[in-house]
Nucleic acid binder design. Structure first.
Lengths: 360, 360
DNA sequence: TTGTAAGCGTTATCAG
DNA sequence: CTGATAACGCTTACAA
């Protein structure tokens, strides 16, 4: 197994000094003056032997494992939030740490077992991530352990969390449409009553109001948050004379369905309908044709913010009360699904005569 | 930080015995007979105090950390292979272990740094995963460390690896089309010269030949492995009289482009063209309309196989020479993009008169 | 400037 | 049946 690694003792022997001295030069302990010559000797031998400290021993002694845990319901399973891992890892690396990642699959039992496993390994802290933005309750086992929540909020004012700024996202989406000249808008929302749904709607409405769009020119419909849901909603929305010229979709998957509805109704994107998505989901947003303009979810940045917050908390012994929280705004990724409304579309005309196909 | 955890010493004190005894009962050491009464007492106290062994100390002593590392070029970054992590984690859990995951982003320097970080933490072994199936060279630092490759093969006969069975995938794709009755086939391949590309082509051709499809009725074209590439290839393929009735795509993203080409040429899927993809990529394969029949990549299973292999190697001290290797066949996920060729399409007719749109 | 020794929390050897 | 005690590899008072 772990082949005979070289220890501090061997370096000491090779350099003809005590292990204390080796430790001192290797750790560059502050108040210690060491003869430059022996110092060189130690360094040379350490390098020659390829010495690397055994962090288990080190951790045992110092009570710092330089290890954090990233625990999530579906963190690794879905294509969705892998960038959270990446963000966390990047800052972990900067802090000489490495991260354990565990998936719980929403099973409380698994979650508890895994938290125990991490705690037994003396992780310095834990990042607790949710797959989709939602309020959570912190597992009891985590009380007293430095923790920060990602993509989740928590009632306990002592625990820091970071979530996407949903309202800002809604505003930005609206802005993308409004500044292109659209004045008849629609929001195809998720049916679920979650922060992402009402947050985005709130922002979207706010911005539309600010541009003077009257209530009746902003339609909001809800559907399942998948392509089929988007499709269903869009056919209702688009198959009428006073149809919206700009549609904002709860997510890119729904946007996929909206594209299909538009195609079936022989409406072109973006000239007949402009579309804005949400998520900037890999391979969808840029795979659609034309490319989907969409609001990106700040997964990477949330991972970074949370990890930084965590290391701060670890270093300082305790988080401030109340703990810091953050809503991160994601950028809007401009592609080709938004254009000024065409004259005809603004008048509710179709570009081509209808040719509804039979396939559902 | 890691709040005052209870140690074996405290349990011993509470139970009025020595730590040796506590260790013995907790570990159920074989040849040790312990008085049932003290045994109960120890167990009770341990439970009452909520004792959990400090695995750092344990690992230091036993030289087994119950920890493995999963290192990959883009493992966590992309939506693609997250299931590898999941598979590895599941078997790790079964072995009382937990997994460090690190991303290298193809940077050799980062890779070396991270490998060091893992080794210093005494990981019991390492899973080395590639984002896409390819041959790799094992980093020198990993020599002597139990390692198994995932989605990558290696010239060194001492290291075990697991990859998708590309040829079998190609065969299965062909079979899906052929058994539905298709006899004019096409394969839209990736331009890159990688195992996935030639493996799938080989399998596809073999199966077609077995069904007696003449050479000239099996066209193979290559393009960039993205939606645009698929689109380009498909317009060439479909815009002719003797067009194929069944198309196999190198991946689901290319299939996305093929769908678009078909729609523009006013060809329906699956009645006018049947399509088979590869990857069963989340949110694409089932987001397309109609749902894409596709060959799934066995990511989860590769993670499982590799981890099991790794733990075996760890337990037995060394891998057998030559090391075991495995090509895993992924299932074909049947959705709605394959149907028998229609009479008309078999004759090369279009269902509707062409209505080519202007938008590129 | 360098070394001795205690201790981090376990397991394992060997006596009692 | 139970308990000292050494050892795992390291850091850190404290001593020399």
């Amino acid at each position: 197994m772990a082949q005979n690694r070289v220890t501090i003792k061997q370096v000491a022997a090779a350099a003809g000094v005590s292990i204390t001295t080796v430790s001192h030069v290797l750790n560059e302990v502050p108040g210690k003056r060491i003869h430059p010559e022996t110092r060189e000797r130690v360094l040379a031998e350490a390098a020659r032997l390829g010495y690397a400290p055994n962090m288990l021993a080190q951790s045992l002694r110092t009570q710092r494992s330089h290890t954090i845990g990233l625990i999530g319901d579906e963190i690794a399973t879905t294509p969705f939030a892998g960038k959270i891992i990446l963000g966390a890892q990047d800052v972990a690396t900067a802090h000489d740490s490495v991260v354990f990642v565990v998936n719980t699959g929403y099973e409380r039992e698994v979650e508890n077992r895994e938290i125990d496993a991490l705690l037994r390994r003396q992780v310095d802290g834990i990042l607790y991530a949710a797959m989709y933005h939602r309020p959570v309750e912190l597992p009891a086992k985590l009380a007293g352990v430095p923790t920060v929540l990602i993509n989740a909020s928590c009632a306990d004012p002592a625990v820091p969390w970071v979530v996407p700024d949903e309202a800002a996202g809604g505003e930005d989406a609206a802005e993308a449409l409004l500044s292109a000249g659209h004045r008849r808008l629609a929001f195809v929302n998720d049916v679920d009553d979650i922060p992402a749904a009402f947050g985005r709607e709130e922002g979207f409405r706010r911005r539309a109001a600010a541009w003077g769009v009257p209530q009746e020119d902003l339609r909001v419909v809800a559907a399942e948050a998948d392509p089929e849901g988007g499709y269903q909603a869009a056919v209702r929305l688009l198959d009428e004379v006073e149809r919206p010229t700009g549609i904002f979709c709860f997510n890119d998957r729904m946007a996929m369905g909206v594209y299909r509805a538009a195609a079936e109704l022989d409406l072109r994107v973006p000239s007949d309908v402009s579309i804005v998505g949400f998520d900037n989901q890999d391979f969808i947003a840029d795979g659609l044709h034309p490319g989907l303009t969409t609001v990106e979810l700040p997964h990477y940045d949330m991972g970074v913010w949370a990890a930084e917050q965590l290391f701060e908390q670890i270093a300082s012994g305790r988080s401030g009360h109340p703990a810091p929280t953050k809503r991160l705004r994601g950028p809007v990724i401009h592609r080709n699904s938004v254009a000024p409304p065409s004259r005809g579309s603004a008048l509710g005309e179709r570009h081509h005569p209808i040719d509804r196909r039979g396939n559902a």
